[in-house]
């Protein structure tokens, strides 16, 4: 496994070993030019600490918000960001691409 995945999963396991709530976000589809490929991960803990990336930095804030919600509800969510989307324009996928991000709680 590559070094980025190694450190992300090490961190995720440490959070869970400390009984901290955690969620994992994954880029599951991309259109046009998007900065991070399918499979890219972002892990978030219950206080909003995070490791990894699902974009060049433009949608991370919104994904972390959704991850905190998923930790409370235990229901996974599929998020979509793109320039056609009002919210995405606000959070700013400057490259003009579109991405779908799946967010799940980690037991």
């Amino acid at each position: 496994m590559n070094a980025d995945d190694d450190s992300l999963f090490d961190t995720l396991r440490r959070w869970r070993a400390e009984s901290r709530p955690a969620a994992l976000a994954t880029v599951v589809s991309t259109w046009g030019s998007s900065p991070r490929p399918e499979g890219s991960h972002l892990a978030v803990d219950g206080e909003g600490h995070f490791i990894g990336s699902v974009s060049g930095g433009c949608i991370e804030g919104a994904v972390i918000e959704a991850a905190l919600e998923v930790m409370r509800s235990r229901q996974p969510r599929l998020l979509e960001f793109g320039v056609s989307d009002e919210q995405a324009w606000q959070v700013g996928l400057a490259c003009g691409g579109r991405v779908q991000v799946f967010v799940e709680a980690v037991e």
Partner: peptide, 14 residues
């Protein structure tokens, strides 16, 4: 993601 899945990913890493 189940705890068992997280453990299996870590095991494969090692």
């Amino acid at each position: 993601m189940k705890a068992g899945t997280l453990a299996r990913i870590a095991e494969a890493q090692g």
